[in-house]
Design a protein around this nucleic acid. Structure first.
Lengths: 184, 184
DNA sequence: CACCTTTTTGCAACTAGTTGCATAAGGGTG
DNA sequence: CACCCTTATGCAACTAGTTGCAAAAAGGTG
């Protein structure tokens, strides 16, 4: 139940059409809440039906024609409500950990190679985030809004750093063994 | 596409009925791959139909009657294949980060309280994991299987530590401000 | 202007996970 | 043995996200 609120946030930052929204998403919000244009169009329709946003009157609603949306007061209130409401953190669900656990039973053949690949992917993502940090958060400017957005980015940076370190450490310790299976 | 493989792993560790499986899941695998008994029964049916597991002949298949499963060779091979096959890490998707980003637009009222609650939840989960570590991985025993399972647990411990620290740090820096809304 | 490509919007079907409930058997209690 | 509670299995409907594709308009090219 979070995508609609992600869209409200983005539209409050700047009214946009579906496609503009998709592109802006890809450059920021999608880093911690990925979504596709199909999903976004669907949600825009629902949000409009619920009276949270409305199409800017400028363009008429036809296929292949840009249609921009802006947030209505009810939408802003809903976003504020949702932001402040308690929500339980969703539990961890990570396939790599599952594979390591499986490897304890069926052997580690092949797994280490993919761990090395993941390590590189995380380091790559880390570099992307650090580039964004350098560009968007130079030392100096420090509005409350900047600080909040910077904290979110820091979480991304620190998480990628975490996984890179964990994978590097795990790779050092990974034993290469065959399963004690029925074939022995 | 990972639950069936989680089940195969658990069944290889020990053949079980649906309910036993559910309980054993809750004590270990569910920490990084949560699931419900409904899901597990459904997957057991599919795995049996695919020839990866079979019901132990001891008990007849009737409702309200225990039915235990064991893994067939084809199931072990499928698990080994899946474990070794490359798989992309799934991107981050975290509602708390989204809420912080939203708070930059609609204000931080109420959010800090829930961040404090999350901080406590993460600390609680950390304590649970540390208890498990003390119980299941005393210094000394060090088979390859133990080391892999211990690494998985360490990831859980380190992740909870990470979030607790991040939340504590964010709380120190969170500005308390009202939105620059249409009411001003 | 006829044709093709790109942009923008969107539908439909599928997948994985969640929630709510049902039904059958076993086991104890009056 | 009639009743009820617990254990074990499972179906059905719903939710959120993914994948594949298509159709309308805009804009360029011969």
């Amino acid at each position: 139940m979070s995508l609609p609120h992600a869209i409200l946030t983005a539209l409050l930052e700047k009214p946009s059409s579906g496609l503009e929204l998709t592109r802006r998403f890809d450059k920021s919000i999608a880093y911690f809440w990925p979504s596709t244009h199909q999903q976004i169009y669907r949600e825009l329709g629902k949000l409009e039906a619920e009276g949270f946003i409305r199409a800017l009157p400028s363009a008429q609603p036809a296929r292949g024609q840009k249609k921009s949306y802006e947030v209505l007061p009810a939408g802003r209130e809903e976003l504020a409500r949702w932001t402040a409401a308690p929500q339980d953190p969703k539990p961890l669900r990570d396939a790599m950990l599952l594979r390591m656990r499986a490897a304890a039973v069926v052997g580690t053949a092949g797994l280490a190679a993919d761990m090395r690949r993941h390590l590189e992917l995380h380091e790559g993502q880390l570099a992307v985030y650090q580039e964004i940090e350098k560009r968007d958060f130079p030392p100096g400017r420090d509005t409350p809004q900047d600080r909040l957005r910077h904290m979110v980015l820091r979480a991304g940076i620190d998480l990628e750093t975490f996984w890179a370190q964990w994978l590097a450490e795990a790779l050092k310790n990974i034993p290469d063994f065959e399963p004690d299976g029925p074939e022995s």
